[in-house]
Design a protein around this nucleic acid. Structure first.
Lengths: 205, 205
DNA sequence: AGCGTACGAGACGAACCGTCTCGTCACACC
DNA sequence: GGTGTGACGAGACGGTTCGTCTCGTACGCT
């Protein structure tokens, strides 16, 4: 006897509907924007009853989070084995600049940017969803930077007393803020500059 | 003959209603959250007809932006003459740490944080409003940091070839991102560390 | 084979939306 | 001061979406 609140019988779930809902949600967010995307609209486009959505998710934000996670997994598989590991050529500055340039490209891709923006915005105001978004998407990404910085510490290219988890924010957060809040333009030149400033510092050497 | 689209006769506007709407909007956002704040709710609480709100603003986000700008001005006046100018004692690190600590306190204040969060979130997804939010609130703040950094450049404490507008992001953006996206805790120790890392760089000196 | 349950479809009341229409009253203008 | 214009509070209105519910159908465990 399953608890009344728990999700229904997962083994009988229609994979076909699940995928159709993901596709419809991502498409709608890209086409009409997040605020105008409705559960009814998703259901209609997916050829699915509303109840089927409400049976498995609690809100449209929930649907979009799962849809985006699914999209990310697909993208990761398509991109090859290691999902977005940061290269380690021994040249820290070059490695970081390369990854940030790839991120810049990603942020310009509407298919990726629209749902990502929507989820980030929802997370700002809805703490519970925000924490899930961060834990499942953002933090794993940040951890890759931390790993690369630790490697640089072992190589003596970064001071040993530096906390990698904070250090990475010096170049990641500015890019994130410019993108999210439109506080400035985004370009390769900009991210390259961030890396240079972060590694060398603002004070004269 | 005024254009049909322009705002109605401003000289006949009720200041009483304007203030009541601001108070109600800020109170509701703080109490029930931004998504559950409605135009009808604001009108009812302010003791005002809905039309009076739609006559002067286009959306609840617009109302909240004006309400928050008003709140900021009041706070600035109450805090004294110069609105949040960054002190210049000659010790750049200490000055920055002081201001950032004050910002940390501000971000913990619910009366200030709730509407600020709501506007930031709306701005992420609504670019037009986002740009106004940034132009009228965020950029003026950032310019103060840029000014302080330019002063430090003249004093030889910051390299002359550094772009102050980008440099300030090294310590401002990480704090912003942690606060907005809940990517990590916020504390004096954290912001102090950011300033140290940014000024001295991650690489060994 | 059959039972159970997820499914598509859509009806339902509730909440808000944004527009509109009242009658009232404050204030700008003369 | 007197007058008339237009903003005001109030709320009715149709439309949209919400989240719940109730059907009959058909898929998939056991």
């Amino acid at each position: 006897m399953a608890s009344k609140e728990s999700t229904p019988d997962v083994s009988r779930r229609s994979e076909r509907s699940r995928r159709a809902i993901f596709d419809a949600a991502l498409a709608l967010v890209g086409e009409v924007g997040y605020p105008k995307t409705t559960v009814e609209g998703i259901a209609a486009r997916a050829g699915v009853g509303k109840q089927t959505i409400y049976r498995w998710w609690r809100s449209k934000a929930d649907v979009l989070l799962d849809a985006f996670l699914d999209l990310s997994e697909q993208a990761a598989e398509a991109a090859g084995q290691a999902p977005y590991a940061i290269p380690d050529t021994g040249d820290l500055a070059a490695d970081l600049k390369g990854v940030l340039r790839a991120t810049v490209d990603e942020l310009q891709d509407p298919a990726f940017a629209a749902p990502s923006r929507a989820l980030a915005a929802e997370g700002v105001v809805n703490e519970e969803l925000g924490r899930r978004f961060v834990a499942r998407l953002l933090l794993p990404q940040l951890e890759l930077y931390a790993d690369r910085l630790r490697s640089a510490q072992r190589a003596g290219q970064v001071r040993a007393d530096i906390d990698p988890r904070i250090a990475l924010e010096l170049f990641v957060s500015p890019l994130a803020q410019r993108w999210l809040q439109h506080t400035g333009p985004i370009s390769y030149e900009y991210t390259d500059t961030l890396v240079d400033y972060a590694l060398n510092g603002l004070a004269p050497r």
